[in-house]
């Protein structure tokens, strides 16, 4: 088996264990929260018989382990149960709401890398100058406030006062495109509607940027500090002694080696955006997983809570696997030790 697939298999295996652990934990927590899910679902006017019948149907009176057993058996078939809030399979709900969240997070992650890395590199190359000081100050601002604060501030500034960007939503009301993937940027392109695509981008920029800001700041600061540290290494002096161009030294001698420690943290930051996305979605009325998540928690919709948390954990783990693979690609030490084993 090639070392790449060995790594992948190993990571997938450990991820599965983590997922089972998470499911057990959230399964337990959801059941400890006070309140009777059947009663909440049926409303105050339901008869005691109806409530009892629903409890029976949901196996709520069975022991915890029996309930978990039912859950695992269903999960193995790809069934997360029925949501008491929407009366639809939880899988269907997630499939509907997740793409909006993913789209937001992916674009934010892209911004984080595309803006954060160059800022960090520039800051490190011009370390000690006013360029460096300015970048550090600005990125400090990005890091020092949570995403939902930026969401409100940016909305006020650019949507309310300057009226450059729309206030909320994914698409203007006047435009409709058939939903195929749930990703608005892809759907509009599939529909061949460029005006709709531009509209979707226009709606996406502000929330994505608000969500990305702290990530941009983190990435820039991290890349800068790791790169400045690498600039103290003897191989930088050697590269200078050999008269390599400054740009080449920055890219191949300072940035490349420093990327290895940076990448792991940037990956975690990216995954953490899934959590912050909930609040940004709330501010921009973004029809993603957040509204669904909050609603099902308040209604003690057990299946939906467990399903939502599991999906988010799975996303986290997938991002981690991708980062692990990337690190093993850029770090020859790891790559070679895998080949040897």
């Amino acid at each position: 088996m090639s070392p790449f697939f060995r790594l992948l298999a190993k990571r997938l295996g450990t991820s599965l264990i983590v997922l089972i652990g998470v499911s057990l934990l959230i399964f337990a927590i959801a059941r400890v929260i006070p309140g009777d899910p059947a009663r909440i679902a049926l409303g105050p006017n339901a008869t005691a018989e109806a409530v009892l019948a629903l409890r029976e149907k949901l196996h709520l009176d069975a022991s915890f382990l029996t309930q978990y057993g039912y859950f695992l058996a269903d999960l193995a078939r790809g069934d997360l149960g029925i949501s008491l809030y929407t009366n639809r399979p939880v899988m269907t709900d997630i499939a509907q709401f997740l793409p909006a969240t993913l789209e937001l997070v992916l674009v934010s992650g892209l911004m984080m890398v595309a803006i954060g890395l160059p800022l960090g590199i520039l800051s490190a190359r011009r370390r000690g100058t006013w360029v460096d000081h300015t970048i550090r100050l600005v990125t400090m601002l990005g890091v020092s406030a949570p995403a939902f604060v930026w969401a409100v501030v940016l909305m006020l500034a650019f949507s309310y006062f300057l009226k450059i960007f729309p206030i909320a939503g994914r698409l203007s009301d006047s435009i409709t495109v058939p939903s195929m993937t749930g990703f608005m940027l892809i759907d509009t392109l599939l529909a061949g509607n460029l005006r709709a695509f531009a509209d979707a981008v226009w709606h996406l920029i502000l929330p994505a940027f608000a969500l990305a800001l702290s990530g941009i700041g983190q990435a820039a600061r991290l890349v800068r500090s790791n790169m400045v540290e690498t600039y103290e290494r003897p191989y930088i002096e050697m590269a200078e002694a050999y008269g390599f161009p400054e740009k080449r030294i920055a890219r191949r001698y300072a940035f490349r080696p420093s990327l290895i420690p940076s990448l792991t943290i940037i990956g975690l930051d990216f995954a953490a955006m899934l959590g912050s996305a909930f609040l940004v979605e709330a501010v921009y009325a973004w029809p993603g997983l957040s509204r669904y998540g909050v609603a099902v928690i308040l209604r003690k919709d057990l299946n939906a809570i467990v399903g939502t948390v599991l999906i988010i954990s799975a996303m986290f783990l997938i991002v981690n696997i991708i980062v692990d693979i990337l690190v093993s690609i850029i770090n020859p030490r790891i790559r070679l030790s895998q080949r040897a084993s």
Partner: peptide, 8 residues
């Protein structure tokens, strides 16, 4: 340590 560790 005078040789760049990420390239052969």
């Amino acid at each position: 340590s005078s040789l760049n560790p990420v390239y052969p």
